[in-house]
């Protein structure tokens, strides 16, 4: 077999990926048109047409774009706070044994609780307010980021610290020039998982208690037995979730180019 150049491989990926998506849509269309499945599930053309329509005509209070933006804004507001807090706590936990001893058991205890288990508490505490969503998103991302950053500090190569000391680095310089760069890939892997968690949690939270957002689209679709609207919401969640992950990856590739093996 002939080896392919990186450019060829990239092109193949795009070509085959596009073909696969197209094929998936065709099969979806044919199944809904040719079988009884069409009676309980909308075909892709109807869904796409509805998505296009709802970008222009409002669905509830705002258009589809409005709902998506509301959900993204909720995620981002709490995610940024959780990221900042998680990075700071993770780094200090990794660096100072006392901080580690205090916080590690608490975090290990709280971490396995799925974010949606907090929804009842968030509603009782914060009701309809935006704060109930921020609370959930914070919980969905904070622990993941903290633990990832903490393990990053723990796995800094001690030989690199030796090398830096030998070259004359003082403690504060070790921190800024060795610890922080070593931890950056761990920060990104934490942020990526946390963002996925957050996006999943906001949908759940909006389904339980809200008057706007992508989760609200789905739940009102269910309440009015509007299958097209439900699938519209699901497609939006998938596409936005995918874009968020892609943006994070792009950022990581830029900032961690040194960490990528091979080409």
């Amino acid at each position: 077999m002939q080896t392919k150049t990186p450019a060829q491989e990239r092109r193949d990926k795009i070509v085959f990926g596009t073909l696969a998506v197209f094929l998936f849509l065709v099969i979806w269309y044919l199944v809904t048109k040719l079988t009884a499945f069409g009676e309980i599930f909308p075909d892709p053309v109807t869904v796409l047409a509805n998505i296009g329509d709802k970008f222009v005509n409002p669905l509830g209070k705002v258009t589809l774009a409005g709902h998506i933006l509301v959900s993204i804004r909720r995620v981002m507001a709490a995610f940024v706070v959780a990221a900042a807090g998680g990075i700071v706590l993770g780094v200090t936990m990794g660096w100072y044994p006392v901080v580690e001893a205090i916080f590690k058991p608490i975090i290990e205890f709280l971490r396995p609780i799925p974010p949606i288990a907090w929804i009842p508490i968030s509603i009782l505490w914060y009701g309809f307010s935006e704060m109930s969503k921020y609370f959930l998103i914070f919980l969905a991302s904070f622990f993941v980021i903290t633990i990832s950053v903490y393990s990053g500090v723990k796995s800094v190569d001690p030989m690199l610290i030796r090398a830096a000391r030998m070259l004359g680095a003082k403690d504060n310089q070790l921190f800024t020039t060795i610890i922080i760069p070593s931890v950056v890939p761990y920060i990104f892997s934490g942020l990526q998982v946390a963002l996925g968690n957050s996006w999943a949690s906001i949908v759940a939270a909006e389904m339980v208690q809200s008057n706007m957002g992508v989760g609200w689209i789905i739940i009102t679709g269910q309440q009015s037995s509007n299958m097209v609207q439900i699938v519209t919401g699901i497609v939006c969640i998938a596409v936005v979730g995918m874009l968020l992950v892609m943006i994070m990856r792009g950022l990581e590739n830029k900032l961690c180019a040194w960490n990528k093996q091979g080409r």
Partner: peptide, 9 residues
């Protein structure tokens, strides 16, 4: 160092 210990970033 034997293992070079270069700073990879």
């Amino acid at each position: 160092f034997q293992t070079t210990c270069l700073f990879p970033w």
